[in-house]
Computed example of a mutant assay.
Amino acid sequence: MHSPELSLRSRLWRIRLDRPSNRIVIGVALLAYLLISWMILKANGNPPIHLHFDASQLVDASIAIKVHVAGALSAFVIGTMLMLGVKGRGLHKTLGYSWVGAMMVTALSSFFVVGLNGNHFSWIHGISAWTVIGLPMGITAARRKNIASHRKQMTGMFVGAMLVAGLFTFLPGRMMWSIFFTNGA
């Protein structure tokens, strides 16, 4: 039985960050993000960075970008609730299907969002393709009562497609960066 008053540490333990593969993926992604961000900022003369919120670029963005961001934000919130919550209950199943829907919206809408690699698909679209294929596999594993496979696939989806891919949307110069940060004096 799970106690409703689990500590944050024990809840994070259940996210499976204790697995070396997840820690390595997150660690490598953070190092790559920091290195790439440093290189971008250095190429631009190391401007000072200030925290601010300006959603005007998102408001003016295409419908594909708005749908993509809405799906990603929904998937992140629902996914976090799933990772921290009790597994195997009715709420987990309901939230799980909602998360799969939000992830599918995020992945499919990404194919209409280009710009990181000119007007061509980038490596992030590979993660989207993997997500479109992996989500049904994770559902199938749960339906077949293969909970270990379901947990591994869905946690991998959350870590890879949400945390890692989401992190790289915050590179300096990209839209999400400019919504939350500004460069300059």
Rank of each mutant, 00 (worst) to 15 (best):
G134W: 08
I26D: 09
H150P: 06
L171K: 02
N44L: 11
M83V: 15
P136I: 02
L30Q: 08
V25R: 01
V100E: 04
T106E: 08
M39C: 13
A142S: 01
L6M: 12
I179N: 08
N119K: 04
I127V: 10
T80I: 14
S74I: 03
R14A: 10
I15N: 15
V164K: 01
G115A: 01
I40A: 04
W38P: 00
M137E: 15
I40D: 03
D60V: 11
L51S: 11
I49M: 05
G173P: 03
S7A: 04
I49P: 00
A61Q: 07
F76Q: 14
V114P: 03
V159G: 13
G96A: 13
H92F: 04
V114G: 00
A70Y: 02
P48D: 09
L8S: 14
G184Q: 03
I63Y: 10
L82N: 01
N146M: 11
L17W: 11
T140N: 15
V69L: 03
T182W: 14
F168Q: 01
N22T: 10
G45P: 09
P4T: 00
H68A: 02
L30F: 08
L95N: 11
F53Q: 13
M1E: 02
E5L: 11
T94A: 14
R143H: 07
L17H: 11
V86A: 14
A107S: 03
I40L: 05
S37E: 00
M176Y: 00
R14D: 00
G156W: 10
T131R: 01
M157K: 08
L8G: 15
L12R: 07
D18K: 14
W38S: 07
M83C: 13
F181S: 06
F181Q: 03
M154Q: 11
M162H: 00
H68W: 03
L84C: 03
K152C: 15
L171E: 04
I78W: 06
V159W: 13
G79L: 02
A61R: 07
M162N: 00
K152Q: 15
G90R: 09
I63R: 03
R9K: 14
T155K: 02
S122K: 01
I127M: 09
S3T: 02
A141M: 10
L163N: 04
G118D: 06
M104N: 07
M176T: 04
M157R: 07
L135V: 02
G115W: 06
G173Q: 06
M104P: 07
G71T: 08
Q153M: 15
V25N: 05
L171V: 07
R16P: 11
M104L: 11
L135H: 06
D18M: 15
R89P: 08
T182S: 14
P4V: 05
H50F: 05
H2W: 02
L95P: 07
T106L: 09
V159F: 14
S10L: 12
G184W: 05
T169Y: 08
S3D: 05
W130Y: 12
S62N: 08
L91H: 13
R174P: 00
T140P: 15
A185Y: 02
